[in-house]
Simulated assay, not measured.
Amino acid sequence: MQPRGPAAPGLALWTSFFLGNLTLYFLLNWTPTVPVEAGLPGDKAIRAGMLLNLGGGLGMLSLGYLSARWSIYRMMSGFFVLGGLFIMVLGHASKATDLLFGLTILAGFFSLGDLIGLYSLAARL
């Protein structure tokens, strides 16, 4: 039985908040570990964590700017899907430092950038 009426969008929103923040938690805790496991020194692993947050900040600013032009619902869906894909690719990255850092920025851009859009969706509900 599926919820109907005003409960359905609310449940979808809070599920998205929960899963988005769970993703944030794991990304912030595991991003330095992935480069170390790939064979990079600790200072570069810390840099990867910094780049993840940089990408997230850029993603939030971009989503806010683009939401004035396009549907926030479609952009949020795209950001969530692309964020998941980049996280999966990041998990299989090799020792190529530039590739690893680029994937980290993109994973942050899409997976952390979409969290700010949830607040906009909450206000619209």
Rank of each mutant, 00 (worst) to 15 (best):
L106Q: 11
W30G: 02
M75P: 04
L51S: 01
F109E: 03
P32K: 11
G113N: 06
A38I: 03
N29G: 05
S16M: 13
T104L: 02
N21P: 03
L63A: 05
G42K: 11
A68Y: 12
L125H: 13
G20Q: 01
S71R: 09
N53K: 03
M88E: 11
G83D: 02
F101Q: 08
L40Y: 00
G83Y: 05
F18H: 11
T33E: 13
L118S: 06
E37V: 10
P41H: 04
V89P: 12
G83F: 00
S120D: 11
L90M: 06
T97P: 06
L11Y: 10
V36Q: 15
G42S: 12
G39R: 13
I105W: 02
A12R: 09
I87R: 07
L19Q: 00
L51G: 02
S71Y: 09
S62T: 15
L112V: 12
G20E: 02
V34C: 01
F80T: 00
G5F: 10
S94N: 14
R4Y: 00
M60D: 07
F110W: 04
S94C: 14
I87F: 05
F80I: 03
L63I: 08
L66E: 06
Y65N: 13
L115M: 12
T104G: 00
T97R: 08
K95M: 00
T31P: 05
G113S: 08
S67Q: 07
L22Q: 04
A122M: 11
K95P: 00
L11K: 01
